[in-house]
């Protein structure tokens, strides 16, 4: 069973993502901001997929992705997928450069999100 972390400061968004992923039967961890996400993903090497919001207090998504790239966590098998709004090509380019593998546009379609995470977790 794959372990997934959702890093988003919006509780609503986290619960929406969690709901969408229910059929996938994943082990899901929540993080409320970038720093929280960094702490949790560093502590738990089993986490293999990170769903990452861009705008968050303390540490934003891009910074988090960059940090995880630097400390080698991405190399160790963490797949990052960004949650973003349409049209932010610049942000996504930065996230990609940092090591994010994909991005999902909000508002997302639950079945497509599930398919994407299943593909990444496999």
């Amino acid at each position: 069973m794959s372990k997934i972390i959702i890093v988003d400061d919006s509780a609503t968004m986290r619960s929406q993502v969690r709901l969408a992923l229910t059929p996938g039967n994943f082990d899901i961890v929540d993080a409320v901001d970038g720093q929280d996400g960094l702490d949790k993903v560093t502590a738990d090497p089993d986490i293999s997929v990170m769903i990452l919001d861009v705008n968050m207090p303390r540490m934003n998504g891009i910074e988090l992705a960059e940090t995880l790239a630097e400390n080698g966590r991405i190399e160790q098998g963490l797949s990052i997928v960004m949650l973003t709004t349409e049209g932010h090509a610049d942000l996504i380019q930065r996230a990609k450069a940092a090591g994010a593998k994909g991005w999902i546009v909000k508002p997302f379609k639950p079945d497509l999100l599930l398919a994407a995470i299943q593909k990444m977790a496999a």
Partner: peptide, 21 residues
């Protein structure tokens, strides 16, 4: 960018197509 994603095949094809403008 989304076409690249489509070609890379990291995301499911349907998702990549869905995210095209």
């Amino acid at each position: 960018m989304n076409w690249d994603a489509l070609e890379e095949g990291f995301l499911p094809l349907e998702l990549a197509i869905d995210q095209l403008p």
